[in-house]
Simulated assay, not measured.
Amino acid sequence: MRDGLVAREVEPTVPPQVTYSLTPLGSELVGTVGCPRRVGHATDRPDPRRP
């Protein structure tokens, strides 16, 4: 798309079929974007104030 991270391909069918995929640049960022999420899950603890 516009940022070059996702590619969009439209098939000329009825209804149109749209396929999205990561570009090589988007694939490079997968590890970087997922890192804070993994850290958050690794440090997630139950809240003792919640039943």
Rank of each mutant, 00 (worst) to 15 (best):
M1N: 08
M1T: 12
R2W: 07
R2E: 07
D3Q: 13
G4W: 01
L5G: 00
L5W: 06
L5C: 02
V6N: 10
V6Y: 01
A7G: 14
A7Y: 10
R8P: 01
V10L: 11
V10P: 00
V10I: 13
V10H: 01
E11Q: 11
E11F: 11
P12C: 08
P12E: 11
P12T: 13
T13H: 09
T13G: 14
T13A: 13
V14F: 14
V14T: 09
V14Y: 06
V14H: 11
P15C: 09
P15R: 12
P15L: 10
P16A: 14
P16I: 08
Q17F: 13
Q17T: 10
V18Q: 02
V18Y: 03
T19G: 00
T19N: 08
T19R: 14
T19M: 06
Y20G: 02
Y20C: 14
Y20D: 05
S21V: 03
S21C: 05
S21F: 01
S21Y: 04
L22W: 05
L22R: 07
L22K: 10
P24C: 07
P24Y: 02
L25H: 01
L25C: 01
E28Y: 13
E28L: 15
L29K: 15
V30S: 01
G31L: 11
G34V: 10
G34P: 00
C35P: 00
C35T: 12
C35Q: 13
C35S: 07
P36F: 07
P36I: 07
P36A: 02
P36Q: 04
P36C: 04
R37E: 04
R38H: 09
V39D: 10
V39R: 13
G40M: 11
G40K: 05
H41L: 15
H41I: 03
A42L: 00
A42H: 03
A42W: 08
T43V: 09
D44V: 03
R45P: 00
R45A: 14
P46I: 06
D47F: 03
P48W: 09
P48D: 09
R49Q: 06
R50N: 10
R50Q: 05
R50I: 14
R50D: 06
P51R: 06
